[in-house]
Computed example of a mutant assay.
Amino acid sequence: MYQGGYLEIRDVIATDAKQIAHIYNHYIQSTFISFEEESVSSQEMSARIEHVQRQNYPWIVALHDDEVIGYAYANTWKPRSAYRYTVEVSVYLSHQKAGKGLGTQLYRQLLERLKANRYENAIGSIALPNHASVRLHERLGFSKVGEFVGIGYKFGEKRTVGYWQLDLQSL
C-alpha cells in the first residue's frame, strides 16, 4: 500500500506526457538507471506513449493530488513473433516518492493487466547496481536470469545490466 496518502491509478492520457517526461528526465540527468543521455521532451514522451498504446500494451500512471507521481508500462521484448507472449516492463517514480510502496502498487496492477491479456512472461532490465529495483522485482516474484557485464556507458563509466523474468501465469 502506498504510504503517501490517497492514490489514484489509471490509464495514461495524452496530457500526462509532460509530467512523465519530467519524472523520466530526472533519471536520465542524475542516474545511470536509464541509459539515455539526452533529456526527453514532452512531445517525444507523447510519441512513446502513443507507440505503446498502438501496440495495445498497458501504460498506467499513479496520481496524488492530480499530479503524476509514477508510471509503469509494458513494451515489446523482441520484435520477432515467437516472442509475442513476452513483454519488457518498466516502472519509474518521482524521485521524491520512492520507498513508499508506490512502485509495488503500480507494478502489481501492470502485471495483473498483462496476465489478463494472456501475456506469459515479463522481463525487467536493471542497470546495476540498483538495490531498490532488484528488491522490487524480486518481491513481486521475478527471478534473475542473466547479466551483461559492462554493456553500456553512462557518465563515462561502464555499466552492467541484469535481467529478471516473471512467469505471469504464476501470479
Rank of each mutant, 00 (worst) to 15 (best):
M1I: 08
Q3A: 14
Q3G: 13
G4V: 02
L7P: 03
L7E: 02
V12L: 02
A14V: 02
T15D: 07
D16L: 09
D16G: 07
K18Q: 09
Q19E: 13
I20V: 12
Y24P: 01
N25Q: 06
N25A: 05
I28A: 04
I28H: 03
S30M: 10
T31L: 11
I33A: 13
I33S: 04
I33L: 11
F35A: 07
E38Y: 06
E38W: 00
V40S: 00
S41F: 02
Q43I: 01
Q43S: 02
Q43L: 01
S46H: 00
S46D: 00
I49R: 00
I49G: 00
H51D: 05
Q53I: 12
Q53D: 01
R54K: 13
R54D: 07
Y57V: 05
W59C: 05
V61G: 03
A62T: 04
L63H: 04
H64A: 13
H64T: 10
D66M: 13
V68T: 08
Y71S: 11
A72I: 10
A74G: 13
N75K: 10
N75E: 08
T76Y: 00
W77C: 05
K78R: 15
P79K: 13
P79D: 09
P79S: 12
R80P: 00
R80K: 13
S81M: 03
S81G: 11
A82I: 12
A82P: 01
Y83R: 09
R84F: 00
Y85G: 03
Y85S: 11
Y85V: 10
E88P: 01
E88C: 08
V89K: 03
S90N: 09
S90L: 06
Y92C: 06
Y92N: 08
K97Q: 14
A98W: 01
A98S: 12
G101L: 10
G103C: 10
G103I: 07
G103L: 06
G103F: 04
Q105A: 14
Q105T: 15
Q105R: 10
Y107S: 12
Y107T: 15
Y107P: 00
Y107H: 02
R108M: 09
Q109N: 11
Q109G: 04
Q109R: 13
L110F: 06
L111M: 10
E112Y: 10
L114N: 06
L114H: 07
K115R: 14
A116Y: 03
N117R: 14
N117S: 14
R118I: 03
R118V: 06
R118N: 10
E120R: 15
A122N: 05
A122V: 08
G124H: 04
I126G: 03
A127E: 05
A127M: 11
A127K: 04
P129I: 15
H131A: 15
H131P: 10
A132K: 11
S133F: 09
R135G: 05
E138M: 14
R139C: 07
L140I: 12
G141E: 06
K144Q: 15
V145G: 10
G146W: 11
G146K: 09
G146P: 05
F148A: 12
Y153K: 15
Y153R: 14
K154E: 09
F155E: 10
F155N: 13
F155V: 12
G156M: 08
E157L: 15
R159P: 01
R159S: 04
R159M: 08
T160G: 05
G162S: 14
G162F: 10
Y163W: 15
W164Q: 06
W164H: 11
W164A: 06
L166G: 03
L166F: 06
D167A: 12
L168Q: 07
Q169H: 09
S170K: 15
L171P: 04
